[in-house]
Design a protein around this nucleic acid. Structure first.
Lengths: 164, 164
DNA sequence: CATAGATATTTCAAACTTAAAATATATGTG
DNA sequence: CACATATATTTTAAGTTTGAAATATCTATG
């Protein structure tokens, strides 16, 4: 704690200007992400008859064409295991992904895009990028870089410590 | 569309560097907000036996001590009307808020903190601010200001156009 | 005053989400 | 091999969230 923080917190129950600035920053992040997510959710529903969580799963699988385990998917998306089970169930029902057995491990399964899933996602991804760019049309290249730099700092600090 | 965008998009199906930078920025916002929300959710549950949505409602009502209508609450929190109904039901059951009739309008109701709700929230808010400050401990004062400025630009551009 | 349309809220069904329990399978140790 | 422990996934219960339909009430217009 630096000198001015120590001074401003001498009563014990107050919070520093810095902590208030960080709280404001967090609330602003929350506001933007809710607004943008809401817009994207509506577009997904109207244009694709689909949802953001399903798009996120397809996107992850599109980056890993050989497929991913359920546990890899949930780690990559930062959601619970049980959550992914339901989303994948629906994508299987839609014919966009398949579950495949894993050699030598009957507990696990690999989830992969089907041909239809690849085709659908490739089309949707382009449209999606356009939506995002429109929603962020006031974001200059420089500000985008600054934003990414600052946010990376935050997420690196909060990275889950891996066991080794 | 500027010259370089026109050039880089001449095939019709490509996307510009700027749109890719904006997409990366959006994904980074999403990553940070998921991570932080997850951390805060867990702390809320363990320390307060409560949830983020309830905290958000209490926070809104703490700012408006005279209470808010359900519709004001849902607009302020950017969630649906039906959503707020459920959260408020639970807060009423916990004794933290009350619904009061509105003079001259029997459709509406005003939701207000109870004494217990005020007391609980005041305590929780301080602890919450500390959690946020810790999670953002790598965020300097200058970066916080930059972040807020950039994000405000984005949210202003996406402000819901009000009818007049 | 009747009543059509607007507004405020709740209800509802479906999907998403979590944390914890349950299930199934693998692996290491005696 | 037996069995304890670890791992991968699904199931379950509770809560959150949405969008649409249903209710209830209000307001303006003829």
């Amino acid at each position: 704690m630096n000198k001015s923080e120590a001074l401003s917190e001498r009563a014990g129950n107050e919070t520093s200007d810095l902590s208030k600035a960080r709280l404001r920053a967090w609330l602003q992040i929350l506001k933007v992400s809710r607004k943008i997510e809401g817009e994207l959710r509506e577009k997904m529903r109207l244009e694709f008859g689909s949802t953001l969580p399903r798009f996120d799963v397809l996107a992850a699988l599109y980056r890993e064409r050989d497929g991913m385990r359920m546990s890899e998917l949930s780690k990559s998306l930062m959601v619970s295991n049980g959550n992914v089970t339901g989303i994948v169930d629906r994508l299987v029902a839609e014919g966009l992904v398949v579950r495949m057995p894993v050699e030598n491990d009957r507990r696990a399964s690999i989830v992969r895009l089907t041909k239809a899933g690849e085709k659908d996602f490739a089309e949707r991804a382009l449209v999606h990028e356009g939506w995002v760019s429109d929603l962020f049309s006031d974001l200059s290249s420089g500000d985008a870089d600054a934003l990414i730099r600052i946010l990376r700092n935050i997420s690196h600090h909060n990275e889950a410590p891996h066991h080794d």
